[in-house]
Design a protein around this nucleic acid. Structure first.
Length: 639
RNA sequence: GCUGGCGUAGCUCAGUCGGCAGAGCGCGGGAUUUGUAAUCCCGUGGUCGCGGGUUCAAGUCCCGCCGCCAGCUCCA
């Protein structure tokens, strides 16, 4: 009784009674209009009593943290709406947290499956509840009271939650009108304060995220303080939809996934194949420049190989099933490592030839559950831009620095500038010695730091066989995608008894690093297509220039321009159909061809070309040489 | 794999209450000789995802399967 705590607000210190609600504290401090406060990392609402001193940052409408409070209340408002629409007894609530842009609630409605058609009705009811402007009241209950309350309400999932709350934790409920929900907050002072929202989708979600538990219906919403922000978000979704690589892949004739061929299996169409060849040629050149050896390995390997590698023990559920031939089992490869190891082991290796860098665009097949397949981004057969680096312990630092540098420089060449780097360290169960882990983790950390990048550490997040660096890239819509991974492996060198002869003329165990830069050709292509909205940089574009004669009499000149461009090394097409110019231009635009040259009487007469860029619009007439120079510059700079 | 939704021409989609399968684009033929995002006319195109069932009659209703979509789960 009478215990006091010190609270710092806007640099001023207040001494107040322990357990005073945050709202009263702010009133005492003369802070007006706040809807909550932040203490440490916790966001609290006005009704929550404060038991610990420290800095208290008031949160006002419009602060980033304020959204969290509001979205949380909207989840309750949605739950209340569901109860009013479908009957309190029939609606059982799971959890209703906030998300990065809104909120969701997992619910079960007896005797009714909620579909997207129900959403407008639910939204309407939510607006009504907002208009009613119920005060949102916080109450603390004893465990027994809480269980009794939610038993009366037939909220079996809530009771499940209560039973999971640690004994020393306070159990609180929030009430608005006659709706009560178990919740630790924070919430708005009243429902009328809620902002603009929209219910987006309905899907299934397991209770507690466990597939042995019942599946509830998850209703997603997004919410912002005002209509403008909400509209912006909705526009983002439209933009993302327009950039969907599955749609672009079909429209631009890049790839095809055919039901009859098989789900998750990608067929590259001629235009996509041209792009892919350019990409792969670039990739190979970059690797050759850095001393990699390019290798090719088979698509299948004997069962005993996968036995030895440990894949059958640890990875089998992700592999296509075994096939048998002449009494011998084979598996389609889910990874390239064992083959690269076979190459390493094909002769006695001296320390003098290390680091040995073996690279391959290796196509692997993995069983992915049918529900997770998604265009090029999640497939069952894909080509990894894979490499294995085998080196001595004291080469580790250099090797990692060089590898990370290669990864970042290649990603930059594709137009990605913004990276997030993650370092994952030793997990609880791990193979390899402490010394190995130490050395490897240091090498990874040093490489990131020397290249001047920030990174996050995922403590204990490494695989059991070694620590790793993951690189995520940020696309044009601000989304992050994981591409590169640089991963130590202390397991396979042991399993395959890989050795090298050191200067001491004795055998030593090398370090092995597994790395991919783009991740996989398929996935990276999906990301690229979405990043550029299908309008790839000139150097990657399947067709770089399309030549458009206006009338028949210009075709001859057009053919000359066409072959000169081709001779200059560009990928060119000639559109000599009997079509109007407008139609030809439109078709080229739709195929997102970077440049068209229009050739009519004027151009034939003056020996010029009239250039129109997909990005730039009509650039007017220029000589063919000028045009070629321009193209060359852009290709070289990978613009 | 799980839950829900969807599946009609190469593509995008319409098809009411169970009653003769449609449009636009594309594709083929013809006319037109064209100046920076769609020229006109004619024609072609279907196992309505697949398999059962109900019915006088099924694109439409029911069941199973396949695929796709959203999410969950999974993701050495």
């Amino acid at each position: 009784m009478g215990e006091r705590i010190r609270v710092l607000i806007d640099g001023r210190e207040f001494e107040i009674k322990k357990g005073t609600p945050l709202g009263e504290i702010l009133k005492l401090a003369g802070v007006d209009g706040a809807i909550g406060g932040k203490v440490g990392n916790r966001i609290l609402d006005l009704q929550t009593p404060l038991f610990e001193g420290g800095e208290l940052k008031p949160i006002f409408k419009g602060d980033p943290e304020s959204l969290e409070i509001m979205r949380h209340s909207l989840a309750h408002i949605m739950a209340q709406a569901l109860k009013e629409l479908y009957g309190t007894e029939r609606v059982h609530l799971g959890v209703g947290p906030t998300t990065e842009e809104g909120f969701y609630y997992d619910v079960e409605v007896e005797g009714h499956t909620i579909t997207e058609e129900d959403l407008p009705k639910i939204e309407e009811k939510m607006r009504e509840i907002i208009r009613r402007d119920y005060p949102i009241l916080r109450k603390e209950l004893s465990r027994e009271e809480a269980i009794r309350l939610f038993e009366d309400l037939k909220e079996r999932y809530k009771i499940d939650i209560i039973n999971r709350i640690p004994p020393d934790e306070v159990i609180s409920v929030y009430q608005q009108g006659d709706f009560v929900d178990l919740c630790k907050g924070p919430h708005l002072p009243s429902t009328g304060e809620a902002g603009a929202f929209k219910l987006m989708s309905v899907s299934g979600a397991y209770w507690l995220g466990r597939s042995d538990q019942p599946q509830l219906t998850r209703i997603y919403g997004i919410a912002f303080w005002n209509e403008k922000d909400l509209e912006e978000r909705l526009k983002f979704y439209e933009e993302a939809k327009k950039r969907d690589h599955r749609r672009l892949g079909r429209e631009l004739e890049f790839f095809l996934i055919d039901e009859e061929v098989g789900p998750g299996l990608v067929i590259w169409l001629p235009r996509g194949a041209v792009y892919r060849r350019v990409l792969e040629d670039y990739w190979k050149e970059e690797h050759l420049r850095r001393g990699y050896h390019l290798v090719y390995t088979p698509h299948v390997g004997r069962s005993r190989l996968w036995e030895r590698s440990g894949h059958l023990e640890y990875y089998r559920e992700n592999m296509f099933p075994e096939m048998e031939m002449e009494g011998e089992g084979y598996f389609v490869k889910p990874m390239n490592c064992p083959f690269h190891i076979a190459i390493y082991k094909s002769k006695v290796r001296s320390y003098k030839e290390l680091p040995l860098k073996l690279a391959e665009l290796g196509t692997v097949y993995r069983y992915e559950m049918s529900g997770v397949l998604h265009g090029l981004l999640r497939v069952r057969g894909f080509t990894q831009d894979d490499a294995h680096i085998i080196c001595t312990p004291d080469q580790v630092d250099d090797v990692i620095r060089e590898t990370l540098d290669l990864a970042l420089s290649m990603l930059k060449d594709f137009g990605f500038e913004d990276f997030r780097i993650y370092l994952s360290t030793k997990p609880e169960y791990a193979t390899g010695t402490d010394e190995q882990w130490e050395r490897a983790q240091n090498a990874l950390r040093k490489a990131i730091e020397e290249l001047g990048h920030d990174y996050e550490v995922d403590e204990g997040g490494g695989a059991f066989y070694g620590p790793k660096i993951d690189v995520k890239i940020k696309d044009a819509l601000g989304r992050f995608w994981q591409c590169s991974t640089i991963q130590f492996d202390f397991n396979l060198p042991e399993r395959f008894d890989m050795t090298y002869v050191g200067p001491d003329n004795r055998k030593h165990r090398p370090y092995m690093i597994h790395r991919a830069i783009l991740g996989s050709i398929e996935r990276f292509t999906g990301i690229l297509l979405e990043h550029y909205g299908g309008l790839l940089p000139l150097w990657l574009s399947p067709t770089q220039v399309r030549v458009l004669p206006i009338a028949d009499r210009h075709v001859e000149y057009a053919k000359r321009v066409f072959s000169e461009l081709e001779r200059a090394g560009f990928r060119v097409e000639l559109d000599d159909r009997e079509e109007r110019l407008g139609a030809k231009i439109r078709d080229a635009e739709l195929m997102k061809i970077p440049y068209v040259v229009v050739l009519g009487d004027k151009e034939v007469e003056t020996g010029t070309v009239s250039v129109r860029g997909k990005r730039e619009g009509n650039l007017g007439s220029m000589s063919l040489e000028e045009f070629i120079d321009m193209l060359r510059r852009k290709v070289e700079s990978r613009e």
